[in-house]
Design a protein around this nucleic acid. Sequence first.
DNA 1: TTGAAAGCGCTAACAG
DNA 2: CTGTTAGCGCTTTCAA
Lengths: 334, 334
Amino acid sequence: MNKNYTIKDIAKALNLSPSTVSRALRDSHEISQKTKKLVLDFAKKINYRTNPIALSLKERKSYSIGIIVSEFANNFFSQVIDGVESVANANNYQVVISQTHESAQREEQNIEYFYSRAIDGILISLSAETSDLSYMQSLIDKGYPLVFFDRVPSSLKGHKVISDNRNGSIEAVHYLAKKGKKKIAHLTGSKSLFITNERVKGYKMGLMANGLEYSESLVKHCEYGGLHHQEVEKAVDELLREDIDAVFISGDKLTTGFLQILREKEDFDQDKILVAGFTNSNVVNLFSPKIISVRQSAFEMGKNAVELLIEQINSKEESLSFKTIIVPTVLSKE
Amino acid sequence: MNKNYTIKDIAKALNLSPSTVSRALRDSHEISQKTKKLVLDFAKKINYRTNPIALSLKERKSYSIGIIVSEFANNFFSQVIDGVESVANANNYQVVISQTHESAQREEQNIEYFYSRAIDGILISLSAETSDLSYMQSLIDKGYPLVFFDRVPSSLKGHKVISDNRNGSIEAVHYLAKKGKKKIAHLTGSKSLFITNERVKGYKMGLMANGLEYSESLVKHCEYGGLHHQEVEKAVDELLREDIDAVFISGDKLTTGFLQILREKEDFDQDKILVAGFTNSNVVNLFSPKIISVRQSAFEMGKNAVELLIEQINSKEESLSFKTIIVPTVLSKE
DNA sequence: TTGAAAGCGCTAACAG
DNA sequence: CTGTTAGCGCTTTCAA
């Protein structure tokens, strides 16, 4: 493979020292206009590009930030990422992405990959499987910039950006109740996730506010957040036995999973159950039966999260006070 | 930020030279068992990790491969990526991903980013906007491993993995014709894309095989592949004026875009037009009206592409013969 | 079997 | 204003 031009090459060609060339390229004030022009022109002519690896090795910095999500075949995450990119690119940061497929092991692997490559900081939404947070804790302790969004850990100190999960849930349940539904079930994700618990709380509060009774048998958890067909199927079957007339669902994959399993039951009256669910799907309006969606301000979350991250990257001192930003959800009847 | 342990640290602690430590860590045969054990044990104890940046600088290799797609809020691409990851991880390669949003400029930026970071090779599906291929050409000429998939350039020599676009299209049109449809339109993407042309050809062949006449007015191109609502809206409006009874659509985004725009026309009888389209959506079965989908073997494509890439990475000689792998499509009525 | 030294490409402290 | 030198962390040739 063809070698690329280096500062040395320029220095040699121009009869200068590498340091002078380096300084000229970075527009240092201690270099004469004449030399600068000479170097810059030549660099342009041979299409010189600085080697970012050498730079990273030297500076322990890569002008890149990493995002780790569970699956990006998910409009929510891709909207978040769009938000992140918009701010990051404006600040001259590159964005690199990887996914965990809800595996705690791959999560750690991915973090380690970014960290060891001098990625300047990471935005992360936890995998459903994650329980051991010591690795992330140790990075935070080292002062490595890390911002959690969406699925955030409850037991870890760090910057966080989340939706107003409780209120979003209350609104959804409220809507179902106002439609005259009496037996509203709740299908949700992993018990170990903070947002799961928040949404369950919202669900309960919504019921209470509408004079409906809470029953444990109406709440079903899917530990992999709907990643596996069977776990959703099991939950749905159990719920159907309870003869529910509405359901509030706590996640994209779960929402579509629920609908698909319902469809498979051909003798089942699809309109019997009114569905409201967290989803940022771009095609939810094509679904039949129609559903109510709780939409997260994903783009906004991405922007907030990366701003927090960049701030942290640029600040010299280790921040001891961590922020939590809460963004609103929107109930959408269409 | 906390410094990490280096080979030097180990050497100092163990009273060895850095080179010995390095060799011991890489299990070189010229190191005694005793020393190896000593080093390995100590390295483990302090949790030593080799610095991949230093390695990359030295070896011009990163054990990473990059994927560039237009948008990954797209089940097709995420399935491809899953295929890529399955093979890559099995071969100890990390996978890094970025998206172009159909912008040729970002595409070049992303390629440059990967290339300059010593990413060992790139898998790419072209942006809709791409017309100038000289940058990629120059990389290929340098011997940089590059494999195209899905949206491949027609005018560039290189490894390619594509669907059997022509046959997939023929099958779709055939199905529509057999359902008694007479005026079958075609909604498709950017004219500059090879796959667009292949699909148009398949469309024509499908019509011909069924004794239907081809008419230019029934074919509409969207230069951004459905990324922008207006371009699709314009195309749909024009098609509706033609009083069509079926449409064959050449892409995920276009397919859902078409359906959404139809939905917006509330007075329009949704079942009047039978829709068949390329899509790998996981939720297409929830759509109403029902559509016929041409599904690409995305996971398979990813696997094939990355295998080609890894082969290229590992081979010393510049391969002068480039392969094109064609994977089948599947017509799915549900 | 081990060590010394050079070098990957870049920057920065120090010297002139 | 410019050059010399050392060093980021690692591997590898050459010498011992």
